[in-house]
């Protein structure tokens, strides 16, 4: 019997959590993450400016103006401007946000409000110029992320759920734990949980690539080069609808992502995405 074990037996182990910094995010992940934040912010704000030029969505190749599945606009009711939004036959009063909102105190008919569009006033030409500039930045950045993620094994090692994580009971357990805002500690915190992995993979491999492809499908010139894009998405107006839906899903992801960042340790999470170091608590025997 070695001395260390003997000591441990002699005085009962007291588990004392100790913070250790582990290397969580590679430089490539950190850089591409922040470039992504920048480009997606500009793409969203300029995209809403572009949406406002014709705030209605359709399915198929062409617009059926009398029958959009989503439309927003303003009208005068009882002497004041009201915003109305229709989604799949359901009508909503969205005054102040969609359809009609105030710009410098003056009520205007517009899709999304001024504080969500770039530029804030109605200016499609400038909105488009921003959108295409940041689209290039976004695509080049995304290509670097995916290439480095495949080459370094980051996607397979860190993002692909392991067999034990895919066990339905484990997935349910994670959902319950998340609902109670209890997050992994200790050794388990070294890896992403299965819900995180699913969300990150869904965004990186499904939503963001769909944004690029549906965006390309809206280009008459690229449709000539890649007619299969129209077949894939069911026409240009369908592509515009899917582009809008995916943008909303990305916004929903960002909201949940930011909430999780705050709830599971704001400073630790932000530090890990800047310096790469993430603190986890490991239990070790008292000396």
């Amino acid at each position: 019997m070695t001395e260390a074990v003997a000591t441990a037996i002699a005085s009962p182990r007291v588990a004392r959590p100790r913070k250790v910094l582990v290397r969580r995010h590679s430089l490539a992940v950190r850089l591409t993450h922040w470039v992504n934040v920048l480009s997606l912010t500009f793409l969203l704000l300029s995209g809403l400016q572009i949406f406002n030029a014709h705030p209605a969505l359709y399915w198929g190749n062409a617009s059926t103006f009398a029958d959009p599945w989503l439309a927003t606009g303003g009208g005068v009711q009882g002497g004041r401007l009201v915003g109305q939004t229709m989604i799949a036959g359901w009508h909503f009063d969205t005054t102040g946000f969609l359809g009609a909102s105030r710009v410098h105190g003056v009520w205007q008919v517009r899709g999304f409000p001024a504080w969500l569009t770039l530029p804030s006033e109605k200016y499609l030409a400038v909105g488009r110029r921003y959108h295409f500039f940041f689209a290039w930045l976004f695509v080049i950045n995304g290509a670097i992320y995916l290439a480095s993620g495949l080459l370094s094994g980051h996607l397979r090692r860190d993002l692909l759920p392991t067999r034990d994580q895919l066990n339905p009971r484990h997935v349910w357990h994670e959902i319950v734990e998340h609902a109670r805002l209890r997050f992994a500690k200790g050794e388990e915190a070294r890896r992403y949980n299965v819900l995180q992995k699913g969300a990150y993979l869904g965004v990186a491999l499904v939503l963001l690539p769909l944004m690029v492809l549906t965006g390309m499908t809206m280009s008459p010139s690229l449709d000539a080069s890649f007619p299969w894009l129209l077949t894939l998405f069911g026409g240009r107006q369908s592509a515009r609808s899917i582009h809008f839906i995916c943008a909303n899903l990305i916004v929903a992801f960002v909201i949940v992502h930011l909430a999780m960042v705050v709830l599971s340790g704001l400073w630790n999470n932000i530090r890990s995405m800047i310096t790469g170091r993430y603190a986890i608590e490991v239990e070790e025997p008292a000396p």
Binding site: H54, A56, Y58, N61, S63, M218, P220, D223, Q237
Partner: peptide, 9 residues
């Protein structure tokens, strides 16, 4: 297909 810069076709 005619594609307006505003978004409709």
């Amino acid at each position: 297909r005619h594609d307006c810069v505003e978004g409709w076709s």
